[in-house]
């Protein structure tokens, strides 16, 4: 009657284990042990100083609320320009930093000017590529409500002109002239003599000098061809012009066909009469010197001449710049 061993074993398989409170459930016999032990844990995402040279992370700092942070970031970028000038980082850098033209802090704006200078001295092509946004923000600054920003706008303009003068005058001649005139308080669109800029102008001649100098460079680039400009300059520009003249070679500057506006949808000027003469002027393509000259003579020259005389009489630093401008105008237009 004794049960055989086999039978016992069989019975054991079907025995129900009793679960007890407080004791863990017994694991199945075929369970695999997955437990492990390690000495360190490394989570990449939370690395605070994983790559000190990854500047992309710093781009956002350009929008930081703290003035010092923004300024510091600009300086960092400026220092690292030589290494990143050929990298893909330049476009995001410029698109993020250009809006700082309208930054409220003077230091930040100065930092941006230095950065632009640094970039320009390394590779002016990059500035040329982004010259549209530049002009956009410079224009914004020129009409900015904060006087200081408005006053600084021409600094940016003259620095930009230094590196891509040709591009700028080709693309936005009328726009910029209007802007500079506005900053100088000579504006044609809604003459507001009581505007703050005009008031400070009277107090602060330093800015007027800068504005006049910017206007000088603008006119110089806009209405003089390269040969005339390089009269006093080095021979380098002439050589440039020699290579530029051949329209059948691959152009050595970015976006050669941009001005054709093949892919932009042009806004219809519904009523040219309502928006005044300027509407037609702004739609004008100013790719060649003759057009630019014509526009300048027609729209701006009489005002400049009139205002300059006043400033020259006042004398001082402004008078000097104004006189320089006067001789330039005389050279070009007489």
């Amino acid at each position: 009657m004794t049960k055989s061993r086999k039978q016992k074993q069989k019975k054991q398989d079907f025995l129900r284990k009793k679960l007890k409170v407080g004791k863990p459930k017994e694991k199945a016999r075929n369970a695999t042990d997955t437990s492990f032990v390690s000495k360190t844990i490394s989570i990449r995402n939370q690395h605070l100083d994983q790559n000190p040279h990854d500047l992309t992370k710093r781009l956002t700092l350009l929008k930081h609320h703290n003035i010092n942070v923004r300024k510091e970031t600009l300086t960092t970028f400026q220092k690292s320009i030589p290494s990143i000038i050929k990298s893909r980082l330049m476009t995001p850098l410029l698109t993020q930093s250009i809006p700082l033209i309208c930054d409220e802090s003077q230091q930040v704006r100065q930092g941006l000017i230095d950065l632009v200078d640094e970039i320009g001295s390394h590779d002016a092509e990059i500035l040329k590529l982004h010259c549209n946004i530049f002009v956009l923000y410079i224009n914004m600054a020129m009409t900015h409500i904060v006087t200081q920003i408005q006053a600084d706008s021409t600094k940016f303009l003259s620095h930009l002109l230094k590196y891509c003068g040709d591009e700028v005058v080709r693309k936005s001649w009328v726009k910029l002239l209007n802007g500079v005139f506005g900053v100088l308080g000579w504006g044609q669109v809604g003459k507001n003599d009581s505007a703050s800029i005009v008031q400070t102008k009277k107090r602060n001649a330093k800015y007027v000098t800068i504005h006049l100098n910017a206007l000088y460079t603008l006119v110089e680039y806009g209405c003089q061809d390269e040969r005339a400009r390089s009269d006093g300059d080095t021979a380098e520009t002439t050589e440039d012009s020699g290579t530029l003249r051949n329209p059948y070679l691959i152009p050595d500057y970015p976006q050669p066909f941009e001005h054709l506006k093949l892919f932009t949808r042009e806004l219809k000027v519904q009523d040219a009469t309502s928006s005044g003469v300027n509407a037609t002027l702004l739609s004008l393509a100013t790719q060649d010197i003759d057009t630019r000259k014509a526009v300048f003579i027609e729209q701006f020259l009489p005002i400049v001449r009139k205002k300059i005389e006043v400033i020259i009489k006042e004398g001082g630093e402004c008078g000097k710049s104004a006189n320089k401008l006067k001789t330039l105008l005389a050279k070009i237009f007489d």
Binding site: H259, L260, L262, A285, T291
Partner: peptide, 14 residues
Amino acid sequence: PSTPHIQILKYSIT
């Protein structure tokens, strides 16, 4: 002048 020239270019291309 560049304005008509560019416009002609654009016209012909499009």
